[in-house]
């Protein structure tokens, strides 16, 4: 199962992953048009302090507390990927209460949002990975 892994050793704190993530969830072909004058709400977020930085996004846990705790059944895990059915999410934030990584966040419309490995948009390699200039975020298979 390919997953997004983050190595803070190589994270430059450039925040490009956030922008590529935000861009990926728009339907625009051009990032400038997509994100111009917009406050972005990326599903991957940089934590940074004192020269250390790293990106955090959904780990797609094998035993996902967010899915187990979801009161609507909007969060599901299929083929190792946890996705959100935004149509069913009523924004109770039980998942935010549950996620030990802080990888779930409220979205602009009240539902929650989280990394879905770009399977609902472009597919393939997630855009945060493609946009990382330094290989700090990788999408690969690792021994469990």
């Amino acid at each position: 199962m390919k997953r997004v892994y983050v190595n803070e050793k190589w994270c430059l704190g450039c925040h490009l992953c956030e922008y590529y993530c935000a861009f990926a969830s728009t339907n625009e072909k051009d990032m400038a048009r997509a994100l111009k004058d917009i406050r972005i709400h990326p599903r991957i977020r940089i934590e940074e302090k004192d020269g250390i930085s790293f990106a955090v996004s959904c780990r797609h846990c094998d035993e996902p507390l967010c899915v187990k705790g979801c009161i609507t059944g909007a969060l599901t895990r299929k083929d190792g990927i946890i996705t959100i059915d935004r149509n069913r999410c009523i924004g109770c934030y039980t998942c935010i209460l549950s996620c030990p990584f802080g990888a779930v966040s409220p979205s602009e419309d009240g539902a929650i949002q989280k990394c879905e490995l770009c399977i609902k948009t472009a597919g393939g390699t997630p855009k945060c990975v493609e946009g990382c200039p330094n290989g700090a975020i990788v999408f690969e298979e690792r021994g469990e």
Binding site: L12, G13, H15, Y19, M31, A32, L35
Partner: peptide, 11 residues
């Protein structure tokens, strides 16, 4: 027109 103020240049 293209700058989205992501501040990557600055960082």
């Amino acid at each position: 027109d293209r700058c989205i103020v992501c501040r990557v240049c600055e960082r």
